[in-house]
C-alpha cells in the first residue's frame, strides 16, 4: 500500500531492496550448498506468504486455507510427473490450472460469508482436502508423501536439469520474480485499488456499486493461484509432496510471515519470511524447541508492532494502523 513515508526512509528501504535483489541475482555463486538451498526455500515460502497477503493484506480477509492451494500445486506437479510421464512445463501448467480451479470453487462458497465465518470456513475447507489427501493414500502417499523424479526442463535447445542446484535456484528465482511483478501490476491496476477499498470499507465499496463478492472471489483466486505456484516450486525443488503441506497450520506459517514482515505490501511477506525462517533456522541450531520462541515473537509483534517490520521501518509501527486495526 503506497503510504507517504518520510522520504529518506523510503529511499533507504528502496536501496536496501535493490541490494537484496542484486544479491539474489548472484546468490548461487556467493553461497555454499546449504545456504543456496536455504535461500531457494525462502523464496518459495516468501511467494506463499505474498500469495496470502493478496487475500489478507490487500482485501482484508483472513484465510487459513491457502495451504490447500500450496498442496494442490505441489501434488499437481508430482502426480503429473509420475503418471503422465510428461515434462516440467506441462506439470507447471497443471499446477496453475488445478490451483486456480480449486480456488475458484472454494472461493465461490467462502466469499459468501465474512468476518469470523470466513476464517472458519477456510479452515474447514482446508481440513476437508487435508483429510481427503490422507484418505486416498494410494494416490497421494498420505503421511508418507510422494517422491518423484524431475525430467529435464526444455528451454529452446537447452535441456536444463533440476538436479543442478544452480539451475534449480535460477528457475525458482525467475518464477518468484515474475509472480511478484504480475502481482505488483495487478495491485497497481484498478483491481488492486478495488481490493483495498473492500478492505478499508466493504460497505462503502458496495454502495459505490462494486460487486464486492466478485472482487473477493478474484482476490481469492489470485491468492490461490500464486500459492499453487509456490507449491509447484516446492515440489520441483524437493521432488516430494505430502499431506502435511495441506494442513491449515502451514497456512498459519504464511499468515505469520506476512504479518511479521508487513501485511498489505508485496515486499513485506518476503521480508517476514526471510527473517523468520532465518531466525528459526539459527535458533533451531541450539534450541530444539525453538517454536516456543516463534510463538513469543508472534505475540510480541502483534502487541508492539501490528503493522509488521516494514511498518516499523517506514515509521508507522504504532498501534491503530489500518491493517493492524481489524
Amino acid at each position: 500500500m503506497a503510504r507517504p513515508a518520510p522520504g529518506g526512509r523510503l529511499r533507504a528501504i528502496q536501496i536496501a531492496g535493490g541490494v537484496v535483489l542484486l544479491f539474489l541475482c548472484a546468490a548461487p555463486y556467493l553461497l555454499g550448498t546449504y545456504f543456496r538451498v536455504f535461500v531457494t526455500e525462502m523464496l518459495i515460502w516468501g511467494l506463499f506468504a505474498m500469495a496470502f497477503d493478496i487475500i489478507y493484506g490487500y482485501t482484508g480477509m483472513l484465510s487459513f486455507g491457502q495451504s490447500t492451494f500450496f498442496g494442490a500445486g505441489a501434488y499437481a506437479v508430482g502426480l503429473t510427473l509420475v503418471h503422465a510421464g510428461s515434462g516440467v512445463w506441462l506439470a507447471l501448467g497443471a499446477a496453475l490450472l488445478v490451483s486456480l480451479v480449486l480456488a475458484a470453487v472454494i472461493g465461490y462458497f467462502a466469499v459468501k460469508v465474512s468476518g469470523h465465518y470466513f476464517v472458519i470456513i477456510t479452515v474447514v475447507f482446508s481440513l476437508v482436502f487435508f483429510r481427503l489427501t490422507l484418505q486416498y493414500k494410494a494416490v497421494t502417499g498420505g503421511d508418507d508423501g510422494l517422491s518423484f523424479q524431475i525430467p529435464a526442463l526444455n528451454v529452446g535447445p537447452l535441456a536444463l536439469s533440476f538436479y543442478n542446484p544452480v539451475v534449480n535456484y535460477y528457475f525458482v528465482f525467475a518464477v518468484v520474480l515474475l509472480s511478484f511483478l504480475v502481482c505488483f501490476l495487478v495491485m497497481q491496476s484498478p483491481w488492486g485499488r478495488i481490493f483495498v477499498s473492500i478492505r478499508e470499507n466493504e460497505h462503502r465499496a458496495r454502495l459505490i456499486g462494486y460487486n464486492v463478492e466478485r472482487y473477493k472471489l478474484l482476490a481469492f483466486m489470485l491468492s490461490g493461484l500464486f500459492a499453487g505456484v509456490a507449491g509447484a516450486l516446492y515440489a520441483l525443488t524437493f521432488r516430494y509432496s505430502n499431506a502435511a503441506l495441506l494442513h491449515w497450520t502451514v497456512s498459519g506459517q504464511g499468515v505469520l510471515w506476512a504479518i511479521v514482515g508487513g501485511a498489505g505490501t508485496l515486499v513485506g511477506p518476503f521480508l517476514g519470511t526471510g527473517l523468520m525462517v532465518s531466525f528459526t533456522d539459527y535458533i533451531g541450531f541450539w534450541f530444539e524447541n525453538y517454536q516456543i520462541l516463534v510463538g513469543a515473537v508472534i505475540i510480541l509483534m502483534v502487541i508492539v508492532a501490528p503493522r509488521g517490520i516494514l511498518g516499523v521501518l517506514m515509521g508507522e509501527g504504532g498501534k491503530g494502523g489500518t491493517s493492524g486495526g481489524r
Binding site: G252, I259, Q291, I299, P306, R326
Partner: peptide, 21 residues
C-alpha cells in the same frame, strides 16, 4: 491488543505454538 479480532487470532496462534512446544 484490545480483543481486536484478527490480531487476537494471531496472538492465540502464537500461544498455541508456545503451549504445544
Amino acid at each position: 491488543i484490545e480483543h481486536k479480532p484478527i490480531i487476537t487470532i494471531l496472538a492465540t496462534f502464537g500461544l498455541s505454538l508456545i503451549f504445544q512446544q
